[in-house]
């Protein structure tokens, strides 16, 4: 008995050691980013491994330099608004399409759903030029609509929500029908609330992908007033490519919103990954 307990304790210790090492490996890039942001340029390009910590003082002014050079308030505002609208649009369209594909019977349903699946199978870059032309012809370049446009409808979301609706028992909907609910009421009052966990997963995925989206904001937003954090950061990389502290200060400021969102929705993030089986 004692040896079993000792073995268990040993296992726990070993597991913790492995987890601590893995956590350390995961955290090193972030620590490096923050510490580099506080160094001088000369220090930052030093290859001496003992110079991980700034040894010529902590240069907080690097954050000030970046904050002044780029309008971070505008970048934050644009990014958060883009995330918000993409999440709202994706959840709204995906839940309706998912319900139609998952619960309703109509001619051509399978063919239409195949079209949705095909969209998931081709690289997103293929749609960029047609989407750019559409946005440009609508006069929506450099607008919030232009930024949100490609994320308004999501094939992945439709698929995820369709699976969610298919998993719900039929008798719930039938009971609602007997009680006199029409299709709209069945959808909004009975079925949609039951797919909340799938919607949360989709919202999280959409938010993360919107935050990481670099190419689309670079294409549709040519001026600094309408662009997002990712595109703004890429521009800084071009301008301050060799000034690592400035770059890292910008990167630290750029990841802040996502860190805050993660801290607030940590539980939902983990649940979302478990529900959809995807990776962020």
């Amino acid at each position: 008995m004692e040896s079993y307990e000792a073995k268990q304790r040993m296992n726990t210790i070993l597991t913790h050691i492995v987890l601590i090492i893995m956590s350390f490996i995961m955290l090193v890039p972030f620590a490096w980013m923050i510490l580099t942001a506080l160094k001088t340029n000369q220090e930052s390009i030093s290859v001496n491994p003992f110079y991980i910590l700034p040894h010529n003082g902590w240069h907080w002014e690097n954050f000030g330099t970046v904050w002044k050079s780029y309008n971070f308030i505008t970048l934050y505002k644009n990014t958060l608004l883009m995330i918000f609208w993409r999440v709202v649009c994706a959840c709204l369209t995906a839940t309706m399409a998912g319900y139609a594909f998952g619960r309703l019977k109509f001619p051509g349903k399978n063919a239409l759903f195949s079209l949705v699946l095909i969209q998931m199978m081709v690289p997103a870059q293929i749609f960029i030029i047609p989407q750019y032309l559409m946005v440009s012809n609508m006069g929506m370049l450099n607008t919030m609509f232009g930024l949100v446009f490609p994320g308004m409808v999501t094939a992945f979301g439709t698929y995820l929500l369709k699976t969610g609706y298919e998993g719900l028992p039929k008798n719930l909907e039938e009971a609602a029908m007997i009680d006199g609910c029409n299709i709209g009421q069945r959808f909004t009052r009975i079925m949609m609330p039951l797919t909340r966990s799938s919607m949360v997963s989709l919202g999280i995925f959409t938010a993360v992908f919107a935050f990481k989206d670099l190419m689309w904001p670079m294409i549709v937003c040519t001026n600094a007033q309408t662009t997002t954090l990712s595109a703004g950061l890429a521009k800084m990389q071009g301008q301050y490519g060799s000034e690592y502290p400035t770059m890292m200060a910008a990167a630290t400021l750029a990841v802040l919103p996502m860190v805050i969102i993660y801290v607030i929705f940590q539980k939902q993030f983990v649940e979302g990954i478990a529900t959809s089986g995807g990776k962020l």
Binding site: I129, Y132, L214, M215, M218, I219, A234
Partner: peptide
């Protein structure tokens, strides 16, 4: 790549 593709798209 992103810059290049954005450039090509325009």
């Amino acid at each position: 790549n992103s810059y290049y593709q954005a450039f090509i798209a325009a």
